[in-house]
């Protein structure tokens, strides 16, 4: 089933050649993506929400998939194919298009852990050398330039991302995330992912 879905996605990508995407919500290039990433790219697990993500960050990730440096299992399984024949121009246009869609928060974390997550996000834990995420991801987890928006992303996606850096995947990710994530315990990751999933 999964395989079938994937194959038709690859075919669709091969046949699409769209130059300008803005305003073409129905274009093939976009549907190739939203088919997995959900209606208006709001996320459809395991594919994360792309709507409202920073353009530069999206473009960097697409390069990472096509060059196989983002190498965690789901990226390998889904995104390596999806980006195999994507031209830099289409990648750029898609990144602009998705960054301009307004994001809806997933709100699927554990309410009980959100306060703990908020504290780590804002203050870090200086005694344990855990940094305050706010310094880079911003006061409302909105991101900037190549630093992604985290607010409102799916709990399980955020959790998996942070765990996988600690496990050694995606090593060549931009400084400093591999180091940040390797300092966090499972409980701290769950708390951060919970807090972030509720941010609007």
């Amino acid at each position: 089933m999964k395989l079938l879905r994937l194959k038709s996605a690859v075919l669709a990508i091969a046949f699409s050649a769209v130059s300008s995407l803005a305003g073409h919500a129905e274009s093939h290039a976009i549907r190739n993506c939203t088919w997995c990433h959900g209606t208006s790219a709001q996320g459809y697990l395991p594919a994360p929400r792309l709507a409202g993500q920073k353009r530069q960050y999206l473009e960097n990730q697409l390069v990472g998939f096509s060059q196989h440096t983002r190498d965690n299992p789901f990226s390998k399984q889904y995104m390596w194919f999806a980006t195999a024949s994507l031209s830099p121009k289409t990648a750029h246009d898609l990144a602009i298009y998705f960054s301009e869609l307004s994001p809806k928060p997933a709100e699927d974390g554990n309410q009980q852990l959100a306060a703990m997550g908020r504290k780590i996000y804002q203050d870090g834990i200086p005694d344990s050398n855990i940094v305050a995420c706010i310094a880079c991801h911003g006061p409302n987890a909105e991101g900037v330039r190549e630093i992604p928006r985290l607010g409102g992303l799916e709990f399980s996606y955020l959790q998996r991302r942070l765990e996988q850096w600690g496990e050694g995947y995606n090593k060549t990710a931009m400084h400093p995330m591999p180091h940040v994530a390797s300092q966090l315990s499972a409980k701290q990751i769950a708390a951060l992912a919970s807090y972030l999933s509720f941010i609007k």
Binding site: N129, I130, C136, P176, H179
Partner: peptide
């Protein structure tokens, strides 16, 4: 060293 790594994170 642990503190240095922490400072350099930011």
């Amino acid at each position: 060293q642990a503190k240095v790594d922490y400072c350099e994170t930011c």
